[in-house]
Amino acid sequence: MTGSNSMSSGYCSLDEESDDFTFFTAKTSFFRRPHGKQGPKKATKEEEEENPKSLSEEEVKSKIEEYNSKVSENGMNLAEDGTYTGFIKVHLKLRRPVTILSPDGKAPGCSPAADVSDRRTSFYMPSDTVKQLHISSTTTVNEVIQGLLKKYTVQDNPRKFALYRRTHRDGQDLIQKLAGTEHPLFLRLLAGPDLENLSFVLKENETGEVEWHAFSVPELQNFLTILEKEERERVKQVELRYTAYKNKLMEALQEVQNKPG
């Protein structure tokens, strides 16, 4: 599995609140989300398209020819043994910092989020990171996740991450978590090259509860430091907001009191 990446340099600040959130992240929202702002709609079984479990050799050949006719580069290639190779793009939407190993103790294109220890450092992955991977039809979701972590020398346990399929329909994103044994290139072939029909997203593995044992002590300490900093910033923002609100109320009250009669 080979790959190339698109990754912004020097950007490491926290972006605005992401489209959804889970219990423990370095970007946990301390406020309720406005009712008018809704995150991606989770796909239901009724909304998910039924994909065939397998294709015949002729069907695979026909699908590849159809796929290649729609792209100018990075098409799929069919091998003599019936397997095929091609490219997929994975969007990295990680809200927690990741731990990497680097010779100089510095994260690529990003300033460290914590002190370096034993050449390990934690940093936020830029929100616009996209990785293009060259994989086979036999490559599984688990192997894609492991390959992505290896490309970025991420030391975190692969079980912390999951690969999701995302489709855009009726103005909303439908998201479904993929099983570790599924084959992304097969899904790409079925959906065609249009990213509106299918795109892949790497996110934290949301199991409903945080698996604290999967984190090292330095990682946990780093998360606490980041959350404490965010808490101070949030408190300051709230204080400023309510101070401004109070001043406007006082001004309005003063205007009413100064009116004759």
Rank of each mutant, 00 (worst) to 15 (best):
R95A: 06
R169N: 08
N51Y: 13
E49T: 11
E50P: 03
N247M: 15
V235Y: 02
D19Q: 06
L133V: 04
K229T: 04
E251W: 07
V238G: 02
E211Y: 09
F223D: 04
P97Y: 07
E66L: 14
E255C: 04
D170L: 13
H134M: 05
E47S: 10
P103N: 09
K42Y: 13
F31A: 12
S216A: 14
V210E: 08
Y245E: 11
A162P: 05
K53C: 10
D115N: 13
N205M: 02
T167N: 07
N5K: 15
R120Y: 04
V98H: 03
V71H: 08
T139R: 05
R234S: 03
Y245H: 06
E211D: 15
A43E: 13
T181Y: 11
L163I: 15
K61E: 14
T2V: 08
L227G: 02
D128N: 08
L149P: 01
F123W: 12
R159V: 15
E206F: 10
P218W: 02
S54V: 15
A191M: 10
L220A: 13
E47A: 12
V141Y: 00
Q146D: 10
I145E: 01
Q176G: 09
P40D: 05
E50K: 14
Y67V: 12
V210I: 13
V141M: 00
S8I: 12
E231P: 07
D194K: 15
D15R: 14
P184N: 11
V217H: 09
F31W: 08
A214L: 11
V90A: 08
F161M: 03
K248F: 00
E233Y: 04
Y245V: 04
I64F: 10
S69I: 12
S111M: 11
E57T: 11
R32N: 12
Y152H: 12
M76W: 04
M125T: 01
N68C: 06
G109T: 05
T153G: 02
H134K: 13
I226M: 02
T22Y: 08
S8V: 14
N51C: 13
K37F: 12
A26E: 02
A114D: 08
N5D: 08
M1F: 07
K236D: 09
P112G: 00
V116K: 02
E59I: 12
A179T: 11
V130E: 02
P158D: 09
Q257P: 01
T140V: 05
E204F: 00
E219Y: 13
K236Q: 05
V71A: 10
L148P: 04
F21E: 04
S62W: 13
V60R: 14
S216L: 01
N74D: 14
L189N: 06
N68E: 10
V98E: 00
S8Q: 12
Q172M: 10
T181K: 08
S122H: 06
E206K: 10
I88V: 06
S127T: 14
A26I: 03
N51I: 14
K45L: 14
T225E: 06
F23G: 05
I226K: 02
D81K: 12
M76R: 14
T121L: 06
A179R: 13
N142K: 15
N222E: 00
F215E: 04
M7L: 07
